[in-house]
Design a protein around this nucleic acid. Structure first.
Lengths: 105, 105
DNA sequence: ACTTACGGTAAGATATCACTTACCATCTGC
DNA sequence: GCAGATGGTAAGTGATATCTTACCGTAAGT
């Protein structure tokens, strides 16, 4: 999973798909409800949800024929973990460089 | 910048480009050095670096005719900030749901 | 059983992306 | 000034992504 990061970043790279994700973050919605709020067709929304689900960023519950989608924390956690690694590393390198600068001066 | 998140996610969505970024995280490298360690041509690396730079994920210093690229913390910070918003929100919603579940039971 | 609402999937068109080779500009050292 | 090294950019190509319409399956209500 740690080597599979493409899915998450690719999922949030598309503006329409990120809009879907952001709306689900506000509150769970059905497919139709998402489509109503966006300038794309319902099948397009279904396809976006498929990509988001594959990245672990959304999940859904059934309610009759409806599917209520919601954000899935696991995907967010994976992406945060990936970025945190580089953040920590870059921060450590920055601090080391700053201290070296100070010692040299 | 906060509404311009596509650049960062799109930049890290491509496996080759993410490989470039990860190598720069280990240590600063010239364009040629990056290309030597990857199965793509040097111009391809230049193009990837352009995308990463536009997303604020890398920067470079001059050393004669060479350009030594390094990671730029600002881009990482922006992406972390974006994800953290959703993380905090999802975590709060999860806790609220868990407590409600407990109250109902 | 029939109708309606909901939503996933297929097929196809257009746009965008990542890569290549070719070319050009800049800086260094002789 | 010349030669070599370094790297950005242009043009073209093949692959991929996103969208559309059309179609099909499933669940609920009458």
């Amino acid at each position: 999973m740690a080597t599979h990061q493409s899915a998450g970043f690719a999922a949030l790279a598309d503006p329409t798909r990120r809009a879907v994700f952001e709306r689900l973050a506000r509150r769970p919605l059905s497919v139709q409800q998402i489509a109503d709020g966006l300038p794309v067709s319902r099948p397009a929304v279904s396809q976006h949800l498929k990509v988001l689900a594959a990245a672990g960023l959304v999940a859904h519950d059934r309610d009759g024929t409806r599917r209520v989608y919601r954000v899935d924390m696991r995907g967010i956690a994976a992406m945060r973990g990936y970025l945190d690694r580089f953040w920590d590393h870059a921060l450590a390198a920055f601090k080391a460089a700053a201290e070296k600068e100070e010692t040299d001066a």
